[in-house]
Amino acid sequence: MLTILLIATVTFFMMHAIPGGPFSRERPLPDEIIAALNEKYHLNDPILKQYFDYMVGLATFNLGPSFRRTGFEVEELILLGFPISAKIGLMAIIIIILVGIPVGIVSALRQNKPADYFVMFIATLGVTIPSFVVAALFIYIFAGVLQWVDAFGLERPSSYIGPVLALVGYSLAFVSRLTRSSMLEVMRQDYIRTARANGLSRFKVIYKHALKNALIPVVTYLGPMVAAILTGSFVVEKVFTIPGIGKYFVQSVNDRDYTMIIGSTVFFAVLYVIMVLLVDVAYSLIDPRIRLGKKSE
């Protein structure tokens, strides 16, 4: 909660620190128009009042009108774009978890075998190659050369493949690498030896005793992963021209649509903080030592 407040405040004052105000453009507008605009957006009010108004608006999810898209309220634009982005993002997260973790486990169990080398090679590529490169390659190969899918938009189910793939890239690779190394580390632990010495089956040793411990660092990564997917969506939605919130944000950045920038930033920040909170909850469910730490505080 404090983080959100802090972010909103910092963002607000940062935007108001811009010299010349939001309407100074390459081509200066007549003074009376600027005055009228300032009047319309309450920019003549004292800064503290503006701040206070903004904070009240924020609490009631009323983020004010968009500077550049006349007739649209910022929250309308967010609500318009968010479901589309959320759908792709959610698909990406599901794929990352359902594919990344098993791949990491299998890779760890086949350590230094060809399958492991192959997976780790692909994963290294995935971690290093930026998402817009993946997106560009995808469009070139599958939409351009092979003509299997549409390059733009989301009309057909197959149109989701490209964006989701580009979005998934880095985090999927990262999660499988993390799972692998964490699994390898855990398999060396004494309690795994204990479990084996107690005659537990290989299956139980791996999927009960090792996995839960190995997932702890993976869960910690979920927070940053949400951030990565968020920023990844800026690029992916731009490349694939998807009308999601990421595309609106990039557009507003290019148009200097200040209310929209503030609104989206705060929205992203809130989303992020909520996800981090969820991750904390998940974390304490897995690791009993954390639970105790919280209780004693």
Binding site: L125, I129, F132, A136, L137, I139, G144, V239
Partner: peptide, 20 residues
Amino acid sequence: IQTYPFQLLAPALMIALMML
């Protein structure tokens, strides 16, 4: 990107190489 994909691919690959 559809008509002149190479103009995008060339710098994209360069970035990927640098990162790698």
